[in-house]
Design a protein around this nucleic acid. Structure first.
Lengths: 198, 198, 198, 198
DNA sequence: AATGAATGAGATTTCATTCAT
DNA sequence: GATGAATGAAATCTCATTCAT
């Protein structure tokens, strides 16, 4: 029996994807992830928030974990406040942006859920690290390098440790229930760098 | 209904509660909370680990949330490494104990789950704060006060900010996937205080 | 801290199982298995038919497969029609009971689903074999042995093959859409044994 | 709407159907039906195996049931082993081919699923009967007629019952987990016909 | 008090089918 | 005609909580 193989009838593209849908799903997922954490986020909730059906989500993301991972990958590297040349001010601006971003986006819930899932779903922490923690850290680290180059810091200073102290202060203050708004960035830069000057 | 604390089995009439059970339940709950987070911790799991039935848990703790809260209340204030008089060394010892405790007890999962639940079950973060975060912070803060009294720090230094930087460095390093074992405490103390000296 | 281990407070039996419930579940499962096959049988359906909640089923049977397996284990070995001494008549009675049982209980659907699941859930066929096929076959085989002992069959006859032919005729007739009621057993015995006589 | 048979692509106006696809779909469907049964066979699976899209299947077969029915209609009547004149040998050859075909094609799963669906989708069993069971039975029956004509069987023998016994032995042996390969056909013919000789 | 039984409310995932190019 | 997208309707299984001894 002469049968033409499949393929010669192909070429059509099929129904095109409803354009905004993918973005809506990922945005909804990231929002709910940040508001409720990974386990409490439900596919039903994401579907409702995105205005699609659950099956449409599954069409793009095989599992809930994959969906959360994709949502984390949409995290944009931190905004880079314009650099003024005054490194100390730039550092404070960077920290202020960090604090503001975390506050505006329920970032600490997101951080918390990635930490809480470390044993069960380690991808989440890895992706958070790659897409949010590392970029921010790199920005801070770059400013510290510049500060040292300008002679504002001792040559032998451990800049990685300083970066950890600067950024970590936010986590510590949030956990302690201490204010992290007005003046927080300045106080933190002062405490960590104030006297690192030679 | 006033709940009686653990061990107090003579409060009212009727058969007294089996005394060891309360402690076993709380220990199991704290362990599972630290290993799996609040939402993944199941009452079945706690019951199995504690060697009791689920109903026995509900007899003492009306809801899962109450159980988790009670478990957090059993957190003992941080051990206080003996103070040597060398304040810098004492600070490093405190930080090393902090890091070690968090590592040994899956502490970052516990921290994470309390953060993740902040919107849904804020008691958890409050209790963690009261029973773990604050005591540790107070210990660090006391040492910083002493350092200032000894003239090791500038009189006008913002010691709260310094405490946040010292403790927060751990969170930042954990999130960044950086090592926090050998030498971490020393490096951190150096970075934050090294130059605070007048 | 002195804690008494779990165990010294034990001994109670807990709420007793609602007595008929287990049997109701298994009966419902066997019925639905026979009416709809394994895949179409739903736990919701079993729960409804048994008058229990789905979770109650899961309390006793961890998975749907385990439930179906347990249901198959409740299959009682075939009734043994009283033996008259007239071996030929006894054989016909056995076959008639076989046909009647299969007809009354949707037995062929059950056989079919076990066959259909052979690749996916081989336990089903194994259990059907053990609890229904083999007992019936053994009964037939015993009668054939007796017939040979009485000199009704040639000594060298392959009685296993004869048993397969006798019982298999039912399957073949059912598949062919041929009547298997009145007189079927007699006709079948005649066809297979009629001429085995020496 | 009258469905056009496979290969008939010139029936109406509009773009003709890609000819090979119909056959590919039916072949895939028959394979999966035989491997997994009707309920477990998914249209996604058929589409993947056939190299077409699900919608293409629905274009030709309105429902899953129609697809399965069409697949069953492609079953070719059993091969007819060449007849040698030795009717007994021809019968054994026919049975051996029967057993071999069922073994090679997961035929018993197919038989099982048609039985299992009898209440829900009776078409399947009807079509299996028409396209597989009856042709095979007719071939056997023809040989039995010939045997009687040659005087090898008693004139009054019930040849339908004999055909059922011969073919049914396979089902019985498969269900009992007994071997049906080497020598099975010979043993079966001997058991059923051995002594039918006058 | 302690237990095992029982349950209602959900969560993830699958699938046949329909839709829009 | 062919395709990939989209969806509503389940199905299995889990879990916090309550019940009956």
């Amino acid at each position: 029996m002469e049968r033409t193989g499949p393929g010669d009838c192909r070429g059509a593209t099929g129904r095109p994807r409803c354009p905004g849908k993918e973005a809506a799903i990922l945005a909804a997922a990231l929002t709910l992830l940040s508001e409720q954490g990974f386990v409490r986020m439900t596919l039903d909730g994401v579907a409702r928030a995105a205005g699609v059906s659950k099956a449409t989500i599954h069409l793009r993301f095989r599992t809930k974990t994959e969906l959360a991972a994709a949502a984390l990958r949409t995290l944009r590297p931190c905004s880079v406040p314009p650099e003024t040349g005054d490194v100390r001010a730039d550092l404070a601006a960077q920290l202020a942006d960090f604090a503001d971003t975390l506050a505006r986006t329920s970032g600490m819930v997101l951080v918390g859920t990635c930490l809480a899932e470390e044993a069960h779903t380690p991808e989440l922490l890895e992706l958070l690290r790659e897409h949010a923690v590392e970029p921010r850290r790199a920005a801070v680290r770059r400013l510290l390098d510049r500060a040292r180059a300008q002679g504002l810091l001792r040559p032998e200073a451990d800049l990685d440790a300083s970066a950890s102290a600067l950024l970590g202060a936010f986590y510590a203050d949030h956990l302690a229930g201490r204010a992290t708004d007005e003046g927080w960035a300045d106080r933190t830069v002062s405490a960590v760098l104030g006297a690192l000057s030679p």
